[in-house]
Design a protein around this nucleic acid. Structure first.
Length: 689
RNA sequence: GGGGCCGUAGCUCAGUGGAUAGAGCAGCGACCUCCUAAGUCGCGUGUCGGAGGUUCGAUUCCUCUCGGCCCCA
C-alpha cells in the first residue's frame, strides 16, 4: 500500500494551510482512483477548487468534482467519483479528518477534527508571529510603485487621498510578499497649475489680483490652503482678463528653462523660476505632512523639473527620433508637432477630427506630460544607464519621515546646497517591475508610454509595466450641497473641481474624522483619536473596488460604526483588552496546549479557519493588486472575532482549564493576525481605545 | 467615430463558473451588577439592467442591447 504511505506523508509534511493540506489529500485520492480504475489522465490537470462548504451541514470544506466527469476527462458520474474518493480518504483513518462525505451532484466534503486542526493553526500563527502571512514570492524582484503624484501648487484633496491610500497599501502588501519595493512620489512641478499660482503671487504683489477672503494668508492658514485660494482666484482672473494668459506663458517658459530664460527680461524669468521652485518645495512639504497623518511615507521624490533639467527628456526625444519612431506632420491640425503615430499602420486622414496619434512635443516646442512620462518610465527600469542617454541624477536626502524612513529626492534646480550627502544613483530605479498608481482617465496616456517602450525594443519592460487604474472620487449630492453646489438637477454625484474650489481638502477630512472620534468618546487621547481617524479614512479609501467611482459622502466616511476602519481597530483593542485582563488576573497562558476541549463552538471554528486563510488571502489580494480584498478580509476577521467574543462567556472567569487555555490561545492568535493585517493596511494598531 | 468602466436589497457597496447571492447604512424591536455597547441578536418575496448564447451548472464567460460615467478631445 504505497499510496497510503504517500498520503500519510502528505498529511505530515507540515502544509502551509488547510487549503493546501486538503487539496493535497484530494489529489492523492484522485491519483489512487485513476490507478485503480485504470484511467489514463494526468492527475495534475484535474481542477481542485476547494472552498468553505456552502452550509455547515455539508462539512467544513468542500470541493466540486462535477467538472471531472466530462467524457474527455474521467467519463464517470461525478457522484460516483466523489464517493470513491471519500471511501479512499476514510480508509486512511487520518486523525485530522472526522468525516468525509460525498453529496450530489458531486461534491466531496470534509469535516475536520476541529480541536486538533485548530491547535495546528494557532501554533503556526504564534510561531511565525509578525511574519505570519509573509511570503517569499517576490524575493529578488525590485518593484517601483509610483503614487500620490500631486501637482505642487495647492492643497491635497480627497481625490489625491484615494491615490495615496491605494498606493501606500499596495506598497505594504507587496513588501509582505518579499518584494523589494521603492515608493516614488512624482511631482509635476513644471506644469500650468504651478505657473498659475506663480502668476497669482506676482499679481497679488502688484495689486492686480484680490482674493475674496483677503489677499494675505488668513490667521493660522496653512501655505497650501492659501495657494488653493490663489489658484481659484487666478482662474477667475483669466476668465475676466484673458490678457493675463500671456503672463502665464512667460512663467511657463521661465520654469521650463530655468534662470537662463526670458531673453530680454532675464531678471523676471529668474524671479519666476525661483518663485516656482520655492512654491513647489513648500507645497510638497505640506503634502508630505498631510500624508504622514495617514501613516503614508515614500522612498524617493521624483520631479518633472529634474527630468527636464537633467536632459533626460532631451535624450529620450533624440533616441525616439533616431529610431524613427516620431513623425512631424507638415500640415493638418498637428502641423509642427512631434507625434507618436498610432494609426494602425495606415496613415491618418489629416482632415479627420479624430486621430490615434499622440502628441509628444507641441508646436511651440514644449513636451507633453506623456513625453516626460516615457523618459521617466525608462529611467525607472534603469534603461537610461545606456550610454545613448548619458544622463545622471543626483540624489540627496530630503528628510526623516514620521515612521523613521529616510526620504530621498532627486536634486532639482530649485533644491541646491545639499550635496554633502549624496545617494548612490544605482540604488534608485532599476526595477524589474513598475506599477503606476494613476486614475483611470490617464489610461490612454499610460498605454502610450508602455507602447513607446515596446517600440524602443524594451518588450520585457513594457510587459512589466502596470497602470493601476482606479476611478475618480466625486461628491455625493448631500456633500456637494454642503459645499454650495447646486444639486437641484438631482444627480447622484457631482465632480470636484479644484479650479472652482469645489473640493474637500485632505486635511479638512482628516480633521473632521478626528473630531468625530472625539465626539463619540470625548475623553479619547489626541493620539488615539488621530490614529482612529486615519484608520477610518484609509479604510474608506481602499474598500471600494478600483473600478468604482466613489461618491464621497462626509457622513459615510466619518461614520465610526459598521464596516469601517474603526471597527477593525476596536476589535483589535478588544482582543488586547482580554489579554490584559487575563494577565491582571494572574493567569499565565500555558506554553503548550496539552489537553484540548472535546469540541469547539461554531464561532471559534469560523474564526480559526478564517485565521488559517490569511496568508492565502493576502497573497491573492497582492497578486491581484487589489487592496480592497485585504480590507474585506480584515473586516471579516474582525467580525468573526466579535462573534466569538459575544457568543462565548468571559475567558477570565472560565473554570474549565482546557477551554480557558484554548481560548486564551485563540485570542492571542487573533490579535497577532489582526496586528499583521492592520499594519499591512497601514493602520497603527491600537491596543486600547 | 473608436476604446474603457459602472448597473446586485430603500441607500452605499462587496462577491463568485458551483449547493439557499452577502455586508454596512437607514427603519422597527431586543441585549450592559460577566473580558470594551465604536459591540451583538432578531426582522429581507433582490427580474444580480434587458435579450440571446456557451456550460452538467451563468449574477459571474461571450454576443447584442438599454441607461449612466470616463478617455481618445
Amino acid at each position: 500500500m504505497t499510496t497510503s504511505t504517500e498520503a500519510q506523508e502528505t498529511a505530515e509534511a507540515a502544509p502551509r494551510d488547510l487549503h493546501e493540506y486538503l487539496s493535497a489529500l484530494v489529489r492523492e485520492a484522485a491519483r489512487n482512483y485513476l490507478a485503480r480504475e485504470q484511467i489514463d489522465y494526468p492527475v495534475e490537470e484535474l481542477p481542485i477548487d476547494l472552498g468553505f462548504s456552502a452550509q455547515a451541514s455539508f462539512g467544513d470544506y468542500s470541493v466540486p468534482l462535477m467538472s471531472w466527469a466530462a467524457k474527455n476527462r474521467l467519463g464517470r458520474p461525478p457522484l460516483v467519483i466523489a464517493e470513491a474518493l471519500a471511501d479512499y480518504l476514510r480508509s486512511l483513518n487520518l486523525p485530522t479528518l472526522q468525516e468525509v462525505t460525498a453529496t450530489r451532484p458531486g461534491y466531496l466534503n470534509f469535516r475536520l477534527n476541529r480541536p486538533l486542526v485548530s491547535r495546528d493553526i494557532m501554533v503556526r500563527v504564534l510561531e511565525a508571529g509578525p511574519d505570519f502571512g509573509q511570503s517569499e514570492t517576490g524575493v529578488g524582484t525590485k518593484v517601483v510603485v509610483e503614487h500620490t503624484n500631486i501637482n505642487s501648487n495647492k492643497a491635497a484633496h480627497v481625490g489625491h487621498l484615494r491615490n495615496s491610500c491605494l498606493g501606500d497599501t499596495l506598497v505594504r502588501m507587496l513588501r509582505t510578499q518579499g518584494y523589494q519595493v521603492e515608493a516614488q512620489n512624482y511631482i509635476d512641478d513644471t506644469g500650468v497649475q504651478v505657473a498659475d499660482v506663480v502668476v497669482g503671487f506676482t499679481l497679488l504683489k502688484e495689486g492686480r489680483l484680490h482674493l475674496p477672503e483677503g489677499d494675505e494668508p488668513l490667521p493660522g492658514e496653512p501655505f497650501d490652503y492659501y495657494c488653493s485660494r490663489v489658484y481659484v482666484a487666478v482662474g477667475k482672473a483669466y476668465d475676466e482678463q484673458p490678457e493675463l494668459l500671456e503672463r502665464r506663458r512667460a512663467v511657463l517658459r521661465a520654469i521650463e528653462h530655468g534662470s537662463e530664460a526670458e531673453a530680454g527680461r532675464p531678471e523676471e524669468g529668474a524671479d519666476y523660476a525661483a518663485l516656482a521652485a520655492d512654491l513647489s518645495q513648500r507645497i510638497v512639504q505640506a503634502h508630505l505632512k498631510t500624508m504622514s497623518r495617514l501613516n503614508i511615507s515614500y522612498d524617493l521624490l521624483t520631479w518633472e523639473s529634474a527630468i527636464l533639467h537633467s536632459g533626460l527628456w532631451k535624450k529620450t526625444f533624440e533616441v525616439l527620433k533616431n529610431r524613427g519612431l516620431l513623425r512631424r506632420p507638415e500640415s493638418g491640425k498637428l502641423a509642427g508637432c512631434w507625434i507618436l503615430p498610432f494609426g494602425e499602420g495606415e496613415s491618418q486622414d489629416e482632415e479627420s477630427e479624430h486621430t490615434l496619434d499622440k502628441v509628444l512635443v507641441k508646436s511651440d516646442g514644449t513636451a507633453t506630460y506623456t513625453a516626460k512620462d516615457i523618459a521617466y518610465q525608462l529611467w525607472k527600469f534603469g534603461l537610461t544607464d545606456d550610454p545613448a542617454f548619458d544622463v545622471h541624477f543626483t540624489f540627496v536626502p530630503w528628510g526623516r519621515q514620521h515612521d523613521g524612513r529616510l526620504l530621498w529626492t532627486m536634486r532639482t534646480p530649485g533644491l541646491q546646497g545639499e550635496a554633502s550627502k549624496e545617494g548612490d544613483p544605482l540604488r534608485f530605479g532599476h526595477a524589474q517591475r513598475v506599477i503606476n498608481v494613476i486614475d483611470v482617465r490617464q489610461s490612454y496616456a499610460q498605454q502610450v508610454v508602455y507602447e513607446s517602450l515596446r517600440r524602443l525594443g524594451y518588450e520585457e519592460q513594457a510587459n512589466n509595466s502596470t497602470h493601476l487604474a482606479y476611478e475618480i472620487v466625486t461628491l455625493s449630492a448631500a456633500t456637494a450641497a454642503s459645499l454650495g453646489v447646486d444639486t437641484s438637477d438631482g444627480r447622484e454625484f457631482y465632480p470636484m473641481s479644484g479650479r472652482k474650489g469645489i473640493e474637500i481638502k485632505a486635511d479638512d477630512l482628516i480633521n473632521a474624522a478626528i473630531a468625530r472620534m472625539k465626539e463619540v468618546k470625548p475623553d479619547l487621547p489626541d493620539e488615539t483619536a488621530a490614529i482612529l481617524g486615519a484608520s477610518a479614512i484609509r479604510y474608506f479609501m481602499i474598500r471600494f473596488s478600483l473600478q468604482q467611482v466613489i461618491a464621497l459622502d462626509m457622513e459615510e466616511v466619518l461614520r465610526p460604526t459598521g464596516d469601517t476602519g474603526v471597527y477593525l481597530q476596536y476589535a483589535y483593542a478588544r482582543a488586547n483588552s482580554i489579554l490584559r485582563r487575563l494577565q491582571e488576573s494572574g493567569y499565565e497562558v500555558p506554553e503548550r496546549l496539552e489537553e484540548l476541549p472535546p469540541a469547539l463552538e461554531q464561532s471559534e471554528w469560523d474564526l480559526l479557519r478564517h485565521i488559517d486563510a490569511y496568508p492565502r488571502r493576502l497573497a491573492e489580494a497582492t497578486s491581484h493588486l487589489a487592496p480592497n480584498l485585504l480590507a474585506a478580509y480584515a473586516y471579516d476577521l474582525a467580525a468573526h472575532f466579535s462573534d466569538f467574543y459575544e457568543h462565548t462567556p468571559p475567558i477570565v472567569k472560565e473554570e474549565d482549564q482546557r477551554i480557558k487555555a484554548f481560548r486564551a490561545w485563540l485570542v492571542r492568535t487573533t490579535a497577532q493576525v489582526m496586528n499583521n493585517a492592520l499594519r499591512t493596511l497601514g493602520f497603527i494598531p491600537l491596543e486600547r481605545v
